[in-house]
Every structure is written in structure tokens, then in C-alpha cells.
């Protein structure tokens, strides 16, 4: 075989090997969660959402090229106080009937640092909440767990990608009770995302 024939084959093999993997974030074990926290005078409002789906394209050889979209079902947001939950879901606050999804679509990564299987980066993307979309930058930690899917789901072979992010948004930027109830509920919402996605082989 001539060298001229080998070069395209090697390139193709390298391209296939280095192709980004698609990770599905619909978690069969149901541990993926987004925690939210707002300060309030008597007691801070603490809750979580579990209805998380989405896909992320991640290349362990080139984490800087990561893209993807994470979707949180607004209906899945829960707080331990039933009245607070009712208010949270109501038309006055999140209006989950009208805006059923909260999404973050990653567009670009900056300050990418990789140490072993852990990558940290500042991800810029579009965050959509309450029907309002804004570009925000979020510090994210990506942990690539090669061949670990089997340890979690014995019937499947593949890799896992764990994403952790901790950031704050202002509810007024997303037209949620703008300028109202600031003495009762803080305008700042602290969000913590802990999710794992699977890439089946």
C-alpha cells in the first residue's frame, strides 16, 4: 500500500477516535439535580429540580469544543413548603404552565484547564428562564469518567460525564416579580447544578 493511500486512512481513524461523544443527561437513576436557593427574612427558600434532560457533546481530547443544551422541567421544581411551591409554580412567579422549560445552551468555553479527567472552564451560553433568554457565563467543572457507565447501569457499556456548576442569577433579569417583594424574597437566586450524562458504546 502506498503512503498516499495510508495517510487518509490514518486521518480517518484519528478523526473517528477523536470524535466528540454525545452524552445524554436523562438520568435513569434520578440523582441529577439542580438546587436553588433564595434568601428570605424568616428562612431562606431552598429547593431542587429533578426533571433534567439534554445532551452535551464532549471530546476528551478537546474539552474546549464542548457544546450542548441542558433542560430543566420547571414543573419538577420542589420546595418543602406546599404553599411556597404553589406560589413558585404560579403565574405570578415562574408560570410553569406557560414556560415549562428552563434551559442553558452552551456556546463557547474560555479559561479551559484540564488536569487528568477533570476540566474546568467558564462556559458562555444562553440561559432561558420564564420565557426570557440572556447570555451568561458560568464556571463549570467537567469530570470525564471513561468506561464507568457499567458501574452505574450494569446492562450498559460506555462513559460518563459529570457536570457541576455553581452560579447566581437575578430574578429581575428574567422578569420574575421585577421590583417586587425584595424585602420578602431576595432578587438573587443561587443555583447549583450536579448532573451526570451517559455516552453508550
Amino acid at each position: 500500500m502506498k503512503l498516499i493511500h495510508i495517510i487518509p486512512l490514518v486521518s480517518l481513524a484519528t478523526a473517528v477516535y477523536a470524535a466528540p461523544q454525545s452524552f445524554d443527561f436523562k438520568d435513569p437513576k434520578g440523582v441529577n439535580n439542580a438546587v436553588f436557593n433564595l434568601d428570605a427574612p424568616l428562612e431562606s427558600v431552598n429547593g431542587s429540580a429533578s426533571g433534567i434532560t439534554g445532551t452535551v457533546s464532549f471530546d476528551p481530547e478537546n474539552p474546549a469544543a464542548t457544546t450542548g443544551k441542558i433542560i430543566v422541567a420547571a414543573e419538577s421544581m420542589t420546595v418543602p413548603n406546599p404553599m411556597q411551591k404553589e406560589h413558585l409554580h404560579s403565574a405570578n412567579w415562574l408560570d410553569v404552565a406557560k414556560y415549562p422549560e428552563i434551559t442553558f445552551e452552551a456556546k463557547s468555553l474560555a479559561n479551559v484547564k484540564t488536569d487528568g479527567n477533570v476540566t474546568t472552564a467558564d462556559v458562555t451560553g444562553t440561559f432561558t428562564l420564564h420565557g426570557v433568554s440572556k447570555d451568561i457565563t458560568v464556571p463549570v467543572k467537567l469530570t470525564y469518567l471513561k468506561d464507568k457507565l457499567n458501574a452505574r447501569v450494569p446492562s450498559l457499556q460506555g462513559d460518563l460525564l459529570v457536570i457541576r456548576a455553581n452560579f447566581s442569577i437575578n430574578r429581575e433579569d428574567f422578569d420574575i416579580q421585577k421590583g417586587k417583594f425584595e424585602d420578602k424574597v431576595s432578587p438573587t437566586i443561587n443555583l447549583t447544578l450536579s448532573i451526570a450524562g451517559a455516552s453508550v458504546k
Binding site: 437513576k29 434520578g30 440523582v31 441529577n32 439535580n33 438546587v35 424568616l42 428562612e43 431552598n46 431542587s48 429533578s50 420542589t78 418543602p80 413548603n81 406546599p82 404553599m83 411556597q84 469530570t143 469518567l145 464507568k148 458501574a151 452505574r152 460518563l160 459529570v162 450536579s194 448532573i195 451526570a196
Partner: peptide, 23 residues
């Protein structure tokens, strides 16, 4: 000393991913 709650969060650690699931 907070508001009345009808449910409480329970955290469970996923050993593989290290994520604390909340039910």
C-alpha cells in the same frame, strides 16, 4: 423556626459520580 413543611429533602450519594441525589 422556619415555615411549616410537608416534606423533607433526603440526600443519597451516587458512589460512581459523587453526585448527591435529592429525594
Amino acid at each position: 423556626r422556619g415555615w411549616t413543611k410537608t416534606s423533607v429533602p433526603v440526600k443519597t450519594l451516587d458512589q460512581v459520580t459523587g453526585i448527591e441525589g435529592i429525594t
